[in-house]
Design a protein around this nucleic acid. Structure first.
Length: 730
RNA sequence: GGGCGCAUAGCUCAGUGGUAGAGCGUCGCAUUUACACUGCGAAGGCCCAAGGUUCAAAUCCUUGUGCGCCCACCA
């Protein structure tokens, strides 16, 4: 039963099965009196994903904490779940469809969503199974998916609540639009590509020259902007000029966003087709004229250029400016253009109707929560990015023009409904814009709508239309922001909210943690957790970011399958000191050796069983004639236990592990075990040595357990104790 | 562009005012008695550069150089 080299491949699945059967991952089943809770919310992995190093990092720290607090008598709940991850998931399923030569429009919304559910059933559980292999002791009986019916109810209620509060509104926003995919993209979905083009200098008036890489958008210009401090242009501010070609009058305005040193220092402002310009437009209440449509073609507003591709229009416009003597210069220019992460197509900023959530009050609350230390962000230096983000926040665009997600509970009066945005009526009959025989829906707008949980029986506006549900779905983060309470049943919320901790990568801090904090405060009146633990990023050994597309990713399962979860966890914790980690796989070797060392030392100790086992260190103090070696190891064992407690509670897991490693390997094995061999031969010290060996081993297994749960539990099963180690009192 | 951080042994990193440490690797020796996923020992470092503070600096300050991460994104 105690084979010579420890074989994690045999032991780990067996041990995990035992834990599952025990039911102890579920706080309701834990033995003994437990008054205090310890609760961790798992960062929701996407259903598209499989385990990567980031997940390993996200989850080892919580597992250490959960295991530690479980042994310390807390009611521990680690809430697991998966995220529907709207855009990413829709993307992978669309890619699958593409292999069959189909697009989502060929299936239609309903069929497509069915297809995504099929995908979810097939692949959605993979990552959770992999987390189990890592030893994650989450309460799987409470696993939730962010599109589960109960969760969806919570999301809907939250939306209705915000709407009643007057915090949700419809508005215009220039979004990053991919003309090929027919969808708007979040900033995260953009990739950047270097492009060689020209910077054209266009004379808008004598002495007022603007520089642009996109002359075709000038048809939609509604201002020229300069920096207020720029003396060259101070006399122009407030004046009006005539825009070339369209001959429209536009104002010259001053805005501090303008860089005086770039180009000519004067910028054409096209709110419809540039995200920054849109913001300038908002500040100065400029008109938004859309000259490029959802297909990436010039719109009706573009007059004679209507229907042309933007490239084509650009050439014609440049030529015309040249003819008219308006072209003041043309310099080769290299810059980065945003492209769609799926199609690689250049993105086209266009104005669209979107839904917004007011951030004013919510941001204030989230700021205060951290400023008053109700939530602590660790390490502390990340607080700054949190404060910066919330301090400069704009209202949150919560609508997304995709199908997979929580559809908005908004119902439009069909008679009032305008489909798509701006000027697109021009291609109403274009076949390429039909789905299911109907026109594709891009953006919807109507003043006549109601927000309700279910479809109204009668339209309150026209009294006879069947109302149409808003096509948009919610931003994925809107639903995941509710995770700490929407992930729990109502009874559980009473018992288990608020919790203690989330652990994630730094880019999630604002996207998710901040939003969980204000959602918790707004809906439950309490912060959802006390600590946000930000861990470093795992880089390649060369110091580069791990990424699937670059082929630099490392699959933790590779190590788990080969060397065991304990060795893998050891490597992660060993290296997770403070900053980003250049992944060094020799640390896995160290972990594997360490697990084996623990195993073999235990074999030695168990071959020398004492007649009975004293319960604790105090019991040992009764023994007379302790040798100096005995005293030393007892003191060291007691001290390392204290240190481990301290380091776990301050989240310095690497220090804890390194201390334990040193103690166990050197103090216990190299020194004491070797000395004990002689002491065991001597009748006078034999029994007490056995006692000490056994006690130090037991204590070591306990303190090591949060870090290397499998091997310690396996050894524990060979001890006389009946309890599993995971619920043994620390 | 803004923020954060890192530069210490061949590699990956601890150390944060007072004679340089670990893991992995390398070399030598040892071993029938827990473990070769072992033990004992050794080699290997002007602690990025320059300046400053100090009795004393890898450690604090300034500047520079190189590298990375996150966020924003430039007409």
């Amino acid at each position: 039963m105690f084979d010579k080299p420890y074989d994690p491949k045999l032991a780990e699945p067996k041990i995990y099965e035992k834990w599952l059967k025990s039911g102890y991952f579920n706080p309701d089943n834990l033995p003994g009196k437990r008054s205090k809770n310890y609760i961790v919310y798992m960062p929701l992995p996407n259903i598209t994903g499989s385990l990567h190093m980031g997940h390993a990092l996200d989850n080892t720290a919580p597992d250490i904490l959960i295991r530690y607090h479980r042994m310390r008598g807390r009611r521990t709940l680690w809430l697991p779940g998966t995220d529907h991850a709207g855009i990413s998931t829709q993307y992978v399923v669309e890619k699958e469809l593409k292999k069959e030569g189909k697009s989502r429009f060929d299936l239609g919304r309903e069929k497509f969503i069915e297809r995504v559910w099929e995908w979810k059933e097939k692949y959605g559980g993979i990552i959770l199974d992999q987390l189990k292999k890592l030893g994650v002791s989450a309460d799987w009986s409470r696993t939730r998916f962010t599109l589960d019916p109960a969760y969806a109810e919570g999301v809907k209620k939250a939306f209705l609540y915000y709407y009643k509060k007057g915090w949700i509104y419809q508005g215009l926003r220039t979004v990053n639009w991919c003309p090929r995919c027919g969808t708007s993209l979040s900033e995260l979905e953009l990739e950047y590509k270097d492009e060689k083009t020209f910077l054209w200098h266009i004379k808008y008036a004598d002495g007022l020259i603007v520089a642009t890489t996109r002359p075709e958008t000038m048809l939609g210009d509604t201002a020229v902007a300069v920096n207020p401090k720029d003396k060259r242009y101070s006399k122009w501010i407030g004046r009006k000029i005539t825009l070339p070609i369209t001959e429209r009058e536009i104002p010259v305005i001053a805005d501090k966003a303008i860089d005086m040193d770039f180009g000519t220092g004067a910028v054409k402002v096209t709110p419809a087709h540039d995200v920054l310009d849109f913001e300038i437009g908002q500040r100065h209440k400029l008109e938004t004229i859309q000259v490029i449509d959802e297909r990436g073609r010039m719109s009706a507003q573009a007059g004679e250029y209507q229907g042309m591709k933007t490239e084509e229009a650009r050439q014609l416009i440049v030529a015309r400016l040249k003819n008219e003597g308006r072209l003041a210069g043309e310099e080769p220019y290299e810059h980065r253009v945003a492209v769609c992460y799926r199609s690689g197509n250049a993105i086209e900023p266009i104005p669209s109707n979107q839904w917004f959530l007011k951030m004013g009050e919510l941001a204030k609350m989230a700021l205060a929560a951290v400023k008053t230390k109700k939530v602590k962000i660790q390490p502390k230096n990340f607080e700054r990015s949190y404060f910066d983000w919330l301090g400069n926040i704009r209202d949150w665009t919560i609508s997304r023009q995709i199908w997979w997600g929580h559809q908005l509970p908004i119902w439009f009066c069909k008679k009032d409904l305008v489909v798509t945005s701006g000027s697109v009526g021009s291609y109403k009959d274009d076949d390429s814009f039909k789905e299911d025989g109907k026109k594709r829906i891009y953006f919807q707008f109507a003043d006549k709508f109601i927000v309700a949980e279910n479809k109204p029986k009668q339209c309150p506006f026209c009294k006879n239309c069947k109302m149409e549900r808003a096509a948009d779905v919610l931003d994925t983060w809107f639903s995941s922001a509710l995770w700490p309470f929407a992930g729990l049943s109502e009874a559980d919320v009473k018992k288990y909210y608020p919790g203690d901790l989330v652990s994630n990568a730094r880019e999630i801090l604002n996207l998710w943690d901040a939003r969980m904090i204000f959602s918790g405060l707004e809906f439950k009146g309490e912060v959802p957790f006390k600590n946000v633990l930000i861990h470093g990023t795992i880089l390649t050994k060369e110091g580069k970011r791990m990424s699937k597309s670059l082929g630099t990713g490392i699959d933790p399962m590779h190590y788990i399958n080969q060397f065991g979860a304990d060795a893998t966890r050891f490597a992660v914790v060993w290296q997770a000191t403070q900053q980003d980690i250049r992944w060094d796989e020799t640390a896995v070797t160290a972990g594997r050796k360490f697990a084996n060392k623990i195993w073999n030392a235990s074999r030695f100790v168990l071959e020398n069983k004492p007649s009975r086992i004293n319960a604790d260190f105090n019991g040992l103090k009764q023994i007379k004639n302790l040798t100096p070696a005995d005293k030393k190891i007892i003191a060291a064992a007691a001290s390392i236990k204290k240190k481990t407690e301290k380091y776990i509670e301050t989240f310095e897991f690497s220090k804890a592990l390194r201390g334990l490693y040193d103690f166990f390997w050197h103090d216990f094995c190299d020194t004491y075990l070797e000395k004990s061999k002689a002491q065991l031969q001597d009748e006078k010290t034999s029994e007490s040595t056995k006692q000490i060996l056994n006690l130090v081993l037991r204590e070591s297994l306990k303190t090591l357990h949060p870090f290397l749960p499998f091997v310690t539990e396996e050894i524990w099963s060979h001890l006389p104790d009946k309890n599993l180690l995971i619920v043994t009192e620390w």
